[in-house]
Amino acid sequence: MSEVYVITSGKGGVGKTTTTANLGAGLAVHDKRVVLVDADIGLRNLDVVMGLENRIVYDIVDVVDGNCRLKQALIKDKRYNNLCLLPAAQTKEKDAVNPEQMQKLCDALRDEFDYVLIDCPAGIEQGFKNAISGVDKAIVITTPEVSAVRDADRIIGLLEAAEVRNPLLILNRIRPDMVKRGDMMALEDVTEILAIDVLGVVPDDESIVISTNRGEPCVTDQESRAGQAFRNITRRLLGETVPLMDLSIDDGIMSKLKKVFKL
């Protein structure tokens, strides 16, 4: 039984594409057949984050227009078993695809894959409507900022209106040290306001920048804290019960010194 997820946020730059790439790679590591669909027509990015930008021949618009077969447009990521990318078109407009075509595409992908992950464009216009039209479930990404949470709330409302029920929340780029100081909203602040189930928390982590620069998802990086967070989220998607990551700050040398000197 395959599942089609949209990864969405409303606001741009909160981590939709990074999350899509990492969850896709994470699920593929668990031997699932996964396809990542970049629905951001005109501003494709998922190929770059995945490091597959040099292998694009056909794209999503070619598929829906019938210029090529679906299989021809799928780029197989050789680093994983059964992970494919369907890239967005870079030179077309958002309305190059309509919701009916998107739904048909999702149904075709269901036959071949266990998980279809759709990377939604920012905004609430046509691109968003396309991205959610063939999905079963939604993952809403936000960061602990007023603007991002506000947009997430709007998106949750729109998903509800489109009958995509019970979206799951990922709180991205949390800084435990700032939360502890009272300088940043905590997970409980955000969940109290948005009132949806939490799928995971991802700490702000330099390793994301590094892995994105390399074009390799950090989910396989055993040293990366964000990678660990994405591994946990992957297992939750697979139905396991995994406790939320302990985000308490590991006491560094400075805080130990402070303790010694009772500062």
């Binding site: 506000r150 940043m184 602040d189």
Partner: peptide, 19 residues
């Protein structure tokens, strides 16, 4: 007031308007 609390209160008010 801490920035965390300010953010939370602003957000709550914003969402009352939005919703």
């Amino acid at each position: 007031p801490q920035p965390r609390d300010i953010a939370r209160d602003r957000l709550k008010l914003l969402l009352i308007h939005d919703r």
